[in-house]
Structure formats: structure tokens, C-alpha cells
Design a protein around this nucleic acid. Structure first.
Lengths: 207, 207
DNA sequence: GCAGGCGTAGGATGATCGTCCTACAATAAG
DNA sequence: CTTATTGTAGGACGATCATCCTACGCCTGC
């Protein structure tokens, strides 16, 4: 309660419902019930459902920015920061288990609806992408930073998707561990360069 | 045409529409228009929308099985077979670009709808999983075969999700290349074991 | 005490949805 | 030719949806 407006409550309830039920499958009535507000009164706050969606996306963008800034201040080492991102898969397990990643699933749904706000929704991804890229740059991977960022994004997306279909926490734990090990191998570019060249030669060997 | 029944046409049209628009966003009218059939006549073939969904899932299961058997016969080496799977991301690029992976996106949607057929839909994933596992077993990774299969699934899923949000073919090509290189490192377990131990020691070194 | 704006309640509206019914065409069997 | 089966067409149905309207309560400033 406190200083939160009805408008805020609507957007927050919609945020949760869009995540749990999907955008299209969530009706005005659903949101109204959640906020304990008259259904018809929505028109005063939001003229269309799309407007609510845009507000939800803006909320998510804001929350993501705040979270990344927090991580920036709480973690000293870029590797630990990226680890923090990877570990969302475990810290948010109880939700991901059923509904997957809120960012990925919304983008996927909007793509199928051919919705106008597709691009706006993808900005949440871009936030993570830019942030991850910056961390990899700090780790000394200036040239590959963006590719590495996209790789982390893709990996975590895939794990989230399979997590919500198989509900298998062991699998998620295993993948998170692997991701952290992979990340470790990138946290010192010098050793990596050496190792990579060495291993390449090894795999080239034929029996 | 030929020997295909109206029922087959309905299921095939529904299959495509569910992929492109999503299950919920596809109405009876949409399918009817696609098949050029009267809307009300659906009741004769399928009593409910859920029945069409189940038929579509069965169709997908059948098609996937056929495809995997074909791959099994056309490719000699397990590594090439897995490569064939990985390369779906490129061969189906024109669709994945807009609609993502048909398997993953359907499972995601049904999860949000809390639909009865969730488990049935996940069987398509399980088909790939079992098949991939078998290939890894053939490559000599008996113990880790399932984890490796899940890893390939997750990786490709993540790439598909980001592909449909960013529409970036270069990214997909890069990831496919990486996946193939990663796969190569697993195609001979002896060399891998050696390399892995060696690299582990390397990364343990501190500056 | 009164006027006016802000926020709310609850229902009307038209469209669309899944579902279902009934009448009709077409083909095959008697 | 008649009959029955199989498939089709088109519309009716109740429900639900996003949207919109109007009437009402509450608070503030005069």
C-alpha cells in the first residue's frame, strides 16, 4: 500500500498474470479480480489492453535496470556478476519451473501474435545483453564480448525452456554448474588463449 | 491431395497455424479458412479444440519419429546425425526467425494455459532427447549421454528463442558453428578425457 | 454548505469464441 | 428407384472478451 497508486497495482498484477498465464490468456477481469477493482473502471487508467502491456514492459525494463545496477554495486568481480545472472535459474526456480523465463516467453508470445510491442519487449533482453557484454569486456574479451553475452543469454533461455517442460531441478543445477565452469574458463583471457590453441591442436589429431 | 482425407488437411493446417499463431490465438475459423471448409462442420471431425491439439501433437510425434529414422539411415556417424539436428536451426531459419522452435513454443504456451496436453506435447522433446542420448552412447558417452542430450536440446532451444526475438542469422550461424565444435570435442571420448583433465589443471592455476 | 474534479462501480455493446444442431448433397447398397 | 450412410454447409447458442458509457461517492477549495 503506502504510496503506491491504483495504477501501479494494476501494472504489477498484470505483470504477474502475463507471466503466469500469458498476455492473451489474461483478461481484464483477471487483472480486475487480482487488484480488487471494478472491471469497467479500467478504461479510466488504461484505454486498451495494449497500453497495459506497454506499461508492464516499462515496469520490467525499470526493474531489470535497477537489478543490474544493484548487481554492479554488490559484486566486485565481473565473473561474480555474470554468475549472479546465471544463478537466477536457481533463485527463481519455483516460478521458472512452471512458467519459464518471463522475458523469453513474452517475446515468444508477442512474436506469434505479431504484436506491435515485440520490439519493446525485446528491450529487456537487450538490457541483459548490453550488461553482460560490458562484463565480458571487463574480463578482457573486447572483441567477442557481444557474442559471449548472446551465448550466455541463449544458454540460460534454453535451460529455462526445458526446465518448464521437464520440471527437473537436477538438470538445471547441472547446467548452471556447467555454465559457471564455462564462464570460469573465460575469466582469464590469457590462460584461455593458450588453452584453446592447445586443445584445438589436440582435437585435430586423428587416430 | 491424392489419398489425404479432410481430417488430415485439418490437422496439417492446424499444425501450421498453431506454430505460426499459437494454439490459443488460432480459432476454428482460422483453420476452416485455411482448409476451405465450413466452420460448423468441424464438430463432425473433432468434437473440441483440444481434440485437434492432440491430433496435431500426434502428427508432430509421428513426423519427428519418421525424421529421426531417416537421419538414422542417411547418416553413418553419430556425430553427423547430431550435426543434422543442430543444423535444423539453419535449414528451418526462415520459419524459426519469426516463430521460434515449434516444439519449445508449444510446450511453453501449454504450460501457461495449464493445459491437459502439456505432457503429451513434451513427448516430442523426449523423442529428440532419447534419440540424441542414443547417439551420444554410440559416441562412447554412456554415463553422460542423457545430460549431453539435454544440453544439446537446451542449447538449440535457447538459440531458437533468441533467433526469433533478434532475427539475427549471423548469431545463429555462430552458435551452430560453436555447437558443432563442441560436439566434435565429444566425438572421441579418449582424447576428450585427457584434454579435460589437462585443462582443469590449467584453470586451477592462479596468478 | 456547495461546486467540481477525481476515481470508482456496474452494466451495455458488439464482436468473437467454442460448441452444437439441423438441413442438405453425394455416394453406395438394396 | 429407394434407402442409408457419410460428409458438408450454415447458422443458432451461450459464454466471454475488450471496450465504452453513465451514474455515483468522495474529497478539496471556496
Amino acid at each position: 500500500m503506502g504510496d503506491k497508486t491504483t495504477c501501479d497495482h494494476i501494472v504489477e498484477a498484470a505483470d504477474q498474470l502475463f507471466y503466469r498465464q500469458g498476455y492473451e490468456h489474461t483478461s481484464f477481469s483477471d487483472i480486475a479480480d487480482a487488484v480488487q477493482i471494478s472491471r469497467g473502471n479500467f478504461y479510466y487508467h488504461f484505454k486498451t489492453k495494449d497500453e497495459i502491456l506497454d506499461a508492464v514492459i516499462d515496469l520490467r525494463i525499470g526493474n531489470t535496470q535497477k537489478m543490474l545496477e544493484r548487481w554492479e554495486s554488490e559484486e566486485e568481480h565481473p565473473e561474480d556478476r555474470i554468475k549472479r545472472y546465471i544463478h537466477i535459474l536457481l533463485t527463481n526456480w519455483s516460478k521458472i519451473k512452471y512458467f519459464g523465463c518471463p522475458v523469453g516467453t513474452l517475446c515468444t508470445e508477442l512474436a506469434k501474435l505479431n504484436h506491435t510491442s515485440q520490439e519493446e519487449a525485446s528491450k529487456v533482453f537487450t538490457l541483459f545483453r548490453t550488461w553482460l557484454r560490458q562484463q565480458f569486456i571487463l574480463l578482457g574479451h573486447k572483441k567477442d564480448a557481444d557474442a559471449l553475452a548472446m551465448h550466455v543469454l541463449a544458454w540460460s533461455q534454453g535451460v529455462a525452456t526445458l526446465a518448464s517442460t521437464f520440471h527437473d531441478k537436477k538438470f538445471v543445477r547441472k547446467e548452471v554448474k556447467q555454465m559457471c565452469e564455462w564462464l570460469k574458463s573465460y575469466s582469464n583471457p590469457l590462460i584461455l588463449g593458450f588453452r584453446f590453441e592447445f586443445c584445438k591442436n589436440l582435437t585435430k589429431m586423428e587416430f
